[in-house]
């Protein structure tokens, strides 16, 4: 079974149509991976679906810049959902 970081990286790779090997924790989403606003939303929607999360305030995405931050952002919500 995939871990959360693996699932997140897979979602990012699929949504940005890039090789998963490029999705490193330190990668900058916009500068390194070419993420735009719509792609960011698609990543969020895919994550909501994958992890069964309730609708997330999309404005909170604005401050996220790296893959690791996405993982941390989603991990916090998954844990909150489970508790």
């Amino acid at each position: 079974m995939s871990t959360l970081p693996e699932q997140v990286r897979q979602i990012i790779a699929v949504e940005l149509q890039i090789d998963p090997s490029r999705v490193l924790p330190t990668a900058l989403l916009r500068a390194d991976l070419g993420m735009d606003s719509i792609a960011a939303l698609n990543i969020l929607f895919a994550a909501e679906e994958t992890f069964g999360l309730p609708s997330i305030d999309v404005k909170s995405l604005a401050s996220i810049t790296t893959v690791a931050e996405v993982e941390e952002f989603l991990r916090a919500r998954v844990l909150a959902q489970a508790s």
């Binding site: 606003s37 719509i38 939303l41 999309v58 404005k59 909170s60 995405l61 604005a62 401050s63």
Partner: peptide, 15 residues
């Protein structure tokens, strides 16, 4: 405008 957090909100509603 681009760069404002509200833009994501507006785009999400469009989607």
């Amino acid at each position: 405008p681009a760069g404002r957090p509200e833009r994501l909100e507006h785009l999400s509603l469009v989607l």
